[in-house]
Amino acid sequence: MNGKTTAAAPGGPATQDAVSTTALSGDGLHREYGRGTAVVRALRGVSVAFAPGTFTAVMGPSGSGKTTLLHCLAGMDRPTRGTVRWGGTEVSGLPERRLAELRRTRMGFVFQAFNLMPAMTVAQNVELPGRLAGQPPGRARVREALARVGLAGRERHRPGQLSGGQQQRVAIARALVARPEVLFADEPTGALDRATGHDILGLLREGVDVDGQTCVMVTHDPVAAGYADRVLLLADGLLVDELVSPTADQVGARLSRMGG
């Protein structure tokens, strides 16, 4: 494994030094849904920090808060309490329009369900976030991104003409085309066969090792987590453990003890 990521102690606050030197951090994150006796506490004071050029997997049993944490860190959901910073910029309190602008230029997001527009071509899907931001990436960069994920010559195809693995590659090209500082991935191999999943994980790993990106991935698969520099383990909305340079067997054993 390459790289080493720093994190606050499970449940503890991120230090000021960590905030100033990390690519991404969350400090004291709470996320609650509902009110009164029906309230659901998805996150309960999670503090994490991610160094530039590192790959972190977030894991835990169903309902542990891992996807909620990813969405809060990515600016797609707002924490009830706590702060999120991308580098030195606090984003958790920004107006929605400004936050959307930053999402389109500084981060990429890979969804399990691909989230491609079926009526658009592959090239149009890749360039869509840039067009929405008023900064279309240009044909050369789109072709470069598609070639990198093994889809050179597929620019004019539509998603329905591609396999599931190819559609996920389009989603990764779309996330990479703006050359974001941080790449988030939510179960990126969950709908794929094992061989295709390995290819997708290799692309994420390459972005870290070659481009110096910071990658944060939610996964339920110990084999996928084995591609990461570290694994953060959540349970009941709390950060309960961390594994550095993990193997798939180590991750699987730890999840089994957690009931995941």
Score class of each variant (00 low, 15 high):
Met1Glu: 11
Gly3Met: 00
Thr6Arg: 14
Thr6Asp: 13
Thr6Leu: 14
Pro10Leu: 07
Gly12Phe: 03
Gly12Asn: 01
Ala14Thr: 15
Thr15Met: 01
Gln16Asn: 13
Asp17Ile: 13
Ser20Val: 12
Thr22Ile: 04
Ala23Phe: 02
Ser25Asn: 11
Gly28His: 12
His30Tyr: 15
Gly34Val: 11
Val40Tyr: 07
Arg44Phe: 00
Ser47Ile: 09
Thr54Glu: 08
Val58His: 08
Pro61Thr: 08
Gly65Val: 02
Lys66Gln: 03
Thr68Glu: 09
Leu69Arg: 13
His71Val: 06
Ala74Met: 09
Trp86Ala: 07
Gly87Leu: 13
Thr89Pro: 03
Glu90Thr: 15
Val91Glu: 01
Pro95Ile: 04
Pro95Glu: 08
Arg97Thr: 06
Leu99Met: 06
Leu99Trp: 02
Leu99Glu: 04
Leu102Gly: 00
Arg103Leu: 03
Thr105Phe: 02
Met107Phe: 10
Val110Trp: 05
Val110Arg: 07
Asn115Tyr: 15
Leu116Asn: 13
Ala119Met: 14
Ala119Leu: 14
Thr121Glu: 13
Glu127Tyr: 07
Leu128Ser: 12
Leu128Glu: 15
Gly130Trp: 05
Leu132Gly: 10
Glu144Leu: 02
Ala145Cys: 04
Leu146Gly: 03
Val149Ala: 02
Gly150Tyr: 04
Gly150Lys: 04
Gly153Arg: 06
Glu155Lys: 02
Glu155Ser: 05
Arg156Lys: 14
Gly160Asn: 13
Gln161Asp: 07
Gly164Asn: 13
Gln167Cys: 09
Gln167Thr: 01
Ala171Arg: 05
Arg174Gly: 05
Ala175Gly: 08
Ala185Cys: 10
Thr189Tyr: 01
Gly190Cys: 12
Ala191Thr: 08
Leu192Val: 00
Thr196Phe: 00
Thr196Ser: 05
His198Phe: 11
His198Met: 11
Asp199Gln: 15
Ile200Pro: 12
Ile200Gln: 11
Ile200Asn: 09
Gly202Ser: 05
Leu203Asp: 04
Gly212Trp: 06
Gln213Asp: 06
Thr214Pro: 08
Cys215Leu: 15
Val218Cys: 12
Val218Asn: 12
Thr219Pro: 03
Asp221Tyr: 01
Ala225His: 02
Ala225Gln: 05
Gly226Tyr: 01
Ala228Lys: 02
Arg230Asn: 09
Leu234Arg: 04
Asp236Arg: 15
Gly237Gln: 02
Gly237Ile: 00
Leu239Asn: 05
Asp241Trp: 08
Asp241Cys: 13
Val244Ser: 15
Pro246Gly: 09
Thr247Pro: 12
Ala248Gly: 09
Gln250His: 01
Ala253Thr: 14
Gly259Gln: 08
Gly260Cys: 12
